[in-house]
């Protein structure tokens, strides 16, 4: 099909399409981190989990020919990273922020180590649903190609919000996150809850990674993630630890990330690298705006070392 000339309208359209495409890993990583942080622990290593999820998903999808098995493998790998993080942080005197940094470097190292043979071969992509079937404009159709994982992420955000609000599991996580002592008094083992929350959070981050390598950009390279895992963690603070807010914030971040490519697609390439930095600058600005000097952040789990 011939691209129709739609001029500068292409920019908002490309940003919308980009927001949907780029935001999916943000959704999964931020929901994962949201769960982990609501249990009172911070996992800064999700960038490493994301990259390792990307390679394990890509490798399994390539070897089996089934992208969904790839997503499953990425979730399992992410859960393993989460379990390791949670197990290490259980010990007294261990700094969970520093462990996150170590896990980030370790995850990336392992991913690059095992990913070398997979740089060339092409794995099958995850399918997308063409929501743009009603339009004749190819740009609209391209923008509304929505991947299944995006829809799953949206459902997950609602489900997690409901879980925190009205289920026993959600209440348990919240109690552990707000007061270790209260949880102990209720007969809950805080370490087990945090371990499981970190593992589940890692699994979600792994799925986000599988999306990167199996749909957009859709191949495995060592630069498959450029700080998305980290930005998603900052995004959780901005979203005030609320899963629904995480979803909207992820869309916003996705749109910002699509700004550079969108402008380039209509021929504006001046300052391309500066537009490339837009998501990081936005994250930083939001982080500055949403932090408070008296350290009592609204909505923050009280046991979180990030805010203490």
């Amino acid at each position: 099909m011939e691209p129709v000339e739609i001029g500068l309208w292409g920019v908002p359209l490309a940003i919308l399409g980009g927001a949907i495409r780029v935001s999916t890993p943000f959704i999964f990583v931020s929901l994962g981190e949201c769960l982990t942080e609501r249990s009172g622990r911070i996992n800064l290593g999700l960038e490493g989990t994301l990259v390792f999820g990307a390679i394990s998903g890509y490798a399994v999808a390539y070897e089996t020919g089934n992208p969904f098995l790839g997503v499953l493998a990425a979730a399992l790998a992410g859960a393993c990273f989460g379990l390791l993080h949670g197990w290490i942080c259980k010990f007294k005197g261990v700094n969970d922020i520093a462990v996150g940094i170590a896990m980030m470097l370790f995850g990336m190292g392992l991913a690059f180590f095992f990913g070398k043979p997979y740089i060339q071969p092409q794995a099958p992509d995850l399918p997308a649903i063409p929501f743009g079937w009603w339009s004749d404009t190819p740009q609209v159709q391209a923008a509304l190609q929505v991947n299944i994982l995006f829809i799953l992420g949206a459902i997950l955000a609602v489900a997690m919000a409901w879980m925190f609000k009205s289920t026993r599991v959600g209440l348990t996580v919240r109690v552990v996150g707000d007061s270790t002592d209260a949880a102990r008094a209720m007969g809950i083992n805080p370490n087990s809850v945090r371990l499981l929350s970190t593992a589940a959070g890692g699994a979600l981050a792994g799925i986000g990674g599988a999306y990167l390598s199996l749909y957009y950009p859709g191949s495995w390279t060592e630069g498959v993630s450029s700080g998305q895992g980290l930005m998603a963690i900052a995004l959780v603070i901005f979203a005030r630890w609320n899963p629904i807010n995480c979803f909207w914030a992820a869309l916003l971040f996705g749109g910002t990330g699509a700004l550079g490519p969108a402008l380039q697609s209509v021929g504006i390439s001046e300052g391309y690298y500066l537009f490339f930095a837009a998501p990081y600058v936005l994250t930083l600005i939001l982080l500055i705006m949403t932090s408070s000097p008296d350290r009592a952040m609204q909505g923050a789990p009280l046991e979180l070392s990030l805010t203490k």
Partner: peptide, 21 residues
């Protein structure tokens, strides 16, 4: 009260983009 770990890593990505620019 901005978390220095996240801020510093974000600033590193911004610095690399500035260098490239």
């Amino acid at each position: 009260g901005v978390n220095e770990t996240i801020a510093s890593l974000l600033m590193a990505y911004i610095a690399i983009a500035l260098l490239n620019h």
